[in-house]
Nucleic acid binder design. Structure first.
Ligand SMILES: [Zn+2]
Ligand SMILES: [Zn+2]
Ligand SMILES: [Zn+2]
Ligand SMILES: [Zn+2]
Lengths: 136, 136
DNA sequence: TCGCTATCGAGACTCTGTCTCGATAGACTG
DNA sequence: CAGTCTATCGAGACAGAGTCTCGATAGCGA
């Protein structure tokens, strides 16, 4: 898999220095981070980068389909550099970890009659391997 | 299926006049509404009801498991009076409609090794029956 | 090189949701 | 019924996430 910067270039997005810094910061983590998490990371590369720039860059990345976003109720939106490969997410109730789950079945066949689904986001809730072992 | 008010009573929640008004307002719609959507509906029953009261009441309802919540990126949390029966959601890209989808398969078996899943929320994206027919 | 346009940065602004705190309403006791 | 104890209420201040405005800048094509 190419880097996020390469995939964004390939998608035709104009890659400025700021967007490159933000894409590198996002790609450098396997976590699922928020925009405000990313700001200090991006500033490590370009100190004068603005907060609005991060939001606008992430929106542009999402529009290309190379970056995913998902939201849990009551939490800020998280961005996912791994959207080139479709996958689902498992969220640990105990520690909050978000784990990528490879896609097995196609889930769009679950759509009701008449609904034309092009994608589906599944979020599993439970205990991750580390937390399940403990008798909380 | 009993009304939401009845189900909340059965779950042992203290049902004040305000909570009853909010539960009736929520139950009276088949849509998936936000807390602030609900405020005027609740005030139609009890005019002096406060905004914080609606938020706190909804949080209490969710804690009983009789009301569901789900979030789309960039949108306020929506509340679902129909959580007594587990179901998924289909969201129309074009008109924004949120449609209940009866559960078919159990999806928790998709969890990765070691992860103990107790529930899964699936959100399908696409076009609803009304919007799919049109050549937008 | 010139100019057009998308992007940038700063900060004000909006919106969603939470917290504080004094007042109130119930439940429970006797 | 009166007293007490506690959960809930309402108002408004507050906080966090995200957007908008607008003048400045940088990249791209001609
Ligand atoms: Zn965990
Ligand atoms: Zn992911
Ligand atoms: Zn539609
Ligand atoms: Zn629903």
């Amino acid at each position: 898999m190419a880097t996020l910067v390469e995939r964004l270039e390939a998608s035709g997005l104009r890659l400025t220095a700021q967007r490159r810094a933000i894409a590198e910061a996002l790609d450098g983590t396997d976590r699922h981070v928020t925009a405000d998490d990313l700001l200090p990371q991006a500033r490590a590369r370009i100190p004068e980068i603005g907060r609005a720039t991060v939001y606008k860059a992430l929106a542009a990345f999402v529009a290309t389909g190379q970056v995913g976003e998902f939201a849990l109720p009551g939490e800020p939106v998280r961005y996912d550099p791994n959207a080139g490969v479709a996958h689902h997410h498992a969220v640990c109730d105990a520690c909050g970890a978000v784990i990528d789950v490879p896609i097995g079945d196609d889930l769009t066949h679950l759509a009701p009659p008449g609904f034309v689904a092009h994608s589906g986001d599944l979020v599993l809730h439970g205990r991750c391997a580390a937390c399940a072992g403990q008798t909380s």
